[in-house]
Nucleic acid binder design. Structure first.
Length: 270
DNA sequence: ATGTCATCAACTTGATGA
């Protein structure tokens, strides 16, 4: 009988991988997550600090882009096996926002969903199209017989309790009814929102903007999400937000957000 | 309207995205 394995899945929007490298390395050493999705690398492929990350004990895949966007997947003591780079459905889309790989017995889609501001406008239209593409692809993953997670910066405030002041964000792309409806449709496929599942009615934030000392005052938003397919959600044990990372000097505006899961034991053949 | 921070292009500051 194989022993059940537990592992930690995390997502962290670093807001510039090179300007944030010391913070990232400190956090990796402290938290020791098994699988990490990074967003907003803001670096071309050649500028990704692969050597430093490898020295920290992590194999990495990255999909970089100069100046904007950029996503990566790290696996502790393993090299993730890439299964997809970019979402299907819009061949001319060159923005680096989706990377998918297998590692430690899971398939993980790492995503950086478009912000969509200002709305209305072409950026908001792109966000909605991207969400439709994500839902279509997610549909092909949710019912697989092995564990699958979609994790990253979704740039979606799911409910009013996920923002310190819903009125202040009323006109923002992150909170629009179309965006929330797309989020709900995605969840209705069978995905579990890990943080909400464990925190239940409790308020929890993963992002605090740089204005008005919002981080110190805990005036935040919940934007970084971990969606688990049913096979994986069954093993959900614990979740957390490493807010201490956000409170450091020169921090990213997001904090690392994680879920601890127990992997199902491999089914034996009859 | 404002607030802050990172990046880039083109020069020490401004435009852009978030």
């Amino acid at each position: 009988m194989a022993r059940a394995r537990s592992l930690t899945l995390a997502t962290f929007n670093v807001n510039g991988i090179n300007s944030r490298l010391p913070h990232l390395l400190d956090w990796l050493a402290e938290a020791q997550p098994d699988i990490v999705a990074l967003q907003e690398l803001k670096a071309a492929d050649a500028a990704f600090p692969a050597a430093a990350i490898e020295a920290a004990g992590y194999g990495a895949l990255w999909h970089g882009q100069a100046s904007w966007n950029g996503v990566a997947l790290l696996a502790r003591d393993a090299v993730p096996v890439e299964s997809r780079r970019g979402l299907p459905g819009e061949p001319k889309d060159t923005q680096a926002r989706y990377l998918e790989a297998a590692a430690h017995g899971l398939v993980v889609g790492a995503l950086y969903l478009p912000n969509g501001n200002p709305q209305p406008g072409p950026k908001f239209d792109y966000k909605l199209r991207w969400m439709a593409r994500l839902a279509r692809h997610a549909r092909s993953l949710v019912d697989l017989p092995h564990p699958v997670a979609l994790i990253g910066d979704f740039n979606v405030i799911p409910e009013d309790r996920d923002v310190y002041d819903p009125k202040a964000w009323k006109r923002d792309a992150l909170i629009q009814p179309e965006v929330r409806a797309a989020w709900e449709e995605l969840l209705a496929q069978g995905w579990t929102d890990a943080l909400r599942e464990v925190f239940e009615d409790e308020v929890v934030y993963t992002f605090w903007d740089y204005f008005r000392r919002h981080a110190e005052r805990d005036r935040g938003l919940r934007l970084d999400h971990l969606l688990l397919n049913p096979v994986l959600a069954e093993g959900l044990q614990e979740v957390g937000v490493d807010r201490w990372v956000r409170l450091q000097d020169k921090a990213s505006d997001h904090a690392p957000t994680w879920a601890r899961v127990r992997l199902p034991t491999t089914r034996r053949r009859a």
